[in-house]
Nucleic acid binder design. Structure first.
Length: 456
RNA sequence: GGUGCGUUAGCAAAGCGGUUAUGCUCCGGCCUGCAAAGCCGGCUAGUCCAGUUCGACUCUGGAACGCACCUCCA
């Protein structure tokens, strides 16, 4: 039985889908005005892992991850670059797709874009107006009247009173309440705009997710995910919008992944301490990055550093090494086995990937001792549910000839040369060849079956 | 100021009221011509202070420190 930590309940709860056997999940995706950073990588990988596990558990999943392709930052960046918004967003959507694919992230079933769902948003705002929860202010903006929604604050655990007491709530004279948020922004000269019952304008940030999730998943669905920083105000406002419009529960389970940190501080664009995915992938294999993300529990903070990535690389190398030379047919995990049962129990416990990976290492040790093909196949099958360990081991271990150096053919020639030296018991020469290769980051490993190599 | 979360060995990171977590690093041993990989073993874990208990890293209370949200952010 799968248990999920529900932010709404502040506790782990048994997962019960609305419709038996089916799960509908919506995850807040990217605002496409720049390259994805490691924080984005974490959301992508974490919810890819969740999606895989749900499917693995037998659920028919509909996974929606939106793309925000209109907002203040996009407009500002396009102006700054002197390019159209369409060109800018197309460029970064393509980049995002490449980054996600490199990390082994399976595409969501649907990736709706805000600009393609303006009518849905207008209909939702209209409904809120009818319900007395939206009003047009003197500046032309349409706001959500937070006072009219009783449950406001239930997700973030904040009361309106506490929020008003906060020093950082800005006073905006056009709003009836300082906590009211914008649903529709009146058009400004030179900005993209759409026609609406309230005049030309563009959507506020929060309305798009309420509108697009409703369009694809209905008024009430199972799981809504995103980064911890979206809990408030974004997700809180989504609840206010969707429940305020339809008077029914919006989402049953809210999931929030923890931050990626650098030097114990949140990695964010505003702090300018972020690393982009592609930057990191220049140095590390994408599977190492995926492994690094899954090695921590999704709700814990994840500290980024080269040392930690190196560590992750070594660990993943151990797993691949255990599968090297093994004939591992692609099979489904046999959940009745002790190791697989442990793995499943870990994953069912709020997606405890660190514990699940520990099982993988125990299994690797077992493979190393027994050289049992079936055990190796189980290891590969389990890792496969996490999107790991599916490559031919040599491909991972030998990698690409990074930055010149020896290619595979050079290495094989040198191995032959060394084998001849060894045959003549000229160990000095043999060791010299091995050292030369090691200087290039190539490690040789002798065995009764011959010599194999890998990159450090 | 308000609210929430965290503090585990050299580093990273889980579970668990009593039994080796796991990975990396480092140190022994086996194996090897020597290595590497692997195997076997080792390395002063549980921020502090009280309490509950036969027994607490694990439960309760408090303190210290750290982080996050309250503003755009995954």
């Amino acid at each position: 039985m799968l248990k999920i930590y529900n932010t709404l309940a502040r506790d782990k709860q048994e997962f019960k889908p609305i419709q038996p056997g089916q799960v509908r999940m919506y995850v807040c995706g990217m605002t496409v005005y720049d390259y994805c950073h490691l924080g984005h990588a974490r959301v992508l990988v974490v919810f890819d892992m969740v999606a895989r596990w749900l499917r693995n558990s037998g659920y028919a999943l509909t996974y929606v991850r939106n793309i925000t392709d209109i907002d203040d930052k996009i407009i500002a960046r396009a102006t700054q670059n002197n390019e159209t918004i369409e060109a800018l967003t197309a460029r970064f959507i393509e980049a995002m797709d490449l980054d996600a694919a490199a990390l082994g992230v399976i595409k969501p079933d649907l990736e709706p874009r805000a600009t393609r769902h303006i009518p849905d948003m207008l209909a939702l705002i209209k409904q809120l107006e009818t319900n007395g929860l939206a009003y047009r202010a003197d500046n032309g903006d349409v706001y959500y009247a937070v006072r009219g929604f009783e449950g406001y604050g239930k997700l973030s655990g904040k009361s309106l009173q506490d929020l008003r007491a906060g020093e950082r709530v800005e006073v905006d004279s056009y709003k009836r309440d300082p906590l009211d948020f914008v649903l529709w922004k009146a058009a400004k000269p030179g900005e993209p705009s759409w026609d609406s019952p309230w005049g030309m304008g563009r959507p506020g940030w929060h309305i798009e997710c309420s509108a697009m999730s409703e369009h694809h998943l209905g008024h009430h669905f199972d799981i809504h995910g995103g980064g911890q920083d979206l809990q408030f105000p974004h997700h809180e406002n989504e609840i206010a919008q969707s429940e305020g419009a339809h008077h029914c529960t919006y989402v049953n389970y809210w999931m929030h992944n923890g931050f990626v940190r650098v030097d114990d501080e949140k990695m964010s664009k505003s702090l300018d301490n972020f690393f982009t995915i592609r930057e990191v992938l220049k140095v590390y294999d994408p599977e190492v990055l995926r492994f690094f993300i899954l090695r921590a529990h999704y709700r814990s903070p994840l500290n980024y550093s080269d040392q930690h990535l190196d560590d992750a690389k070594q660990a993943l190398t151990r797993l691949y090494t255990s599968l090297r030379g093994m004939d591992t047919p692609s099979i489904q995990p046999d959940w009745s086995q002790p190791f697989t049962a442990r793995f499943k129990a870990a994953m069912d416990d709020d997606f405890n990937t660190p514990e699940a990976l520990a099982v993988l290492f125990d299994l690797a040790g077992e493979v190393n001792r027994s050289h049992d093909t079936n055990t190796a196949a189980q290891l590969k099958a389990l890792a496969g549910t996490l999107g790991l360990l599916q490559r031919v081991p040599e491909e991972f271990l030998q990698g690409e000839a990074a930055g010149g150096g020896f290619d595979a053919e050079d290495i094989e020639n040198l191995i032959t040369e060394r084998a001849n030296a060894k045959k003549k018991r000229n160990f000095a020469e043999a060791d010299q060849i091995r050292q030369n290769l090691l200087d290039q980051g190539i490690v040789l490993e002798d065995s009764p079956q011959g010599t194999t190599w890998r990159r450090q």
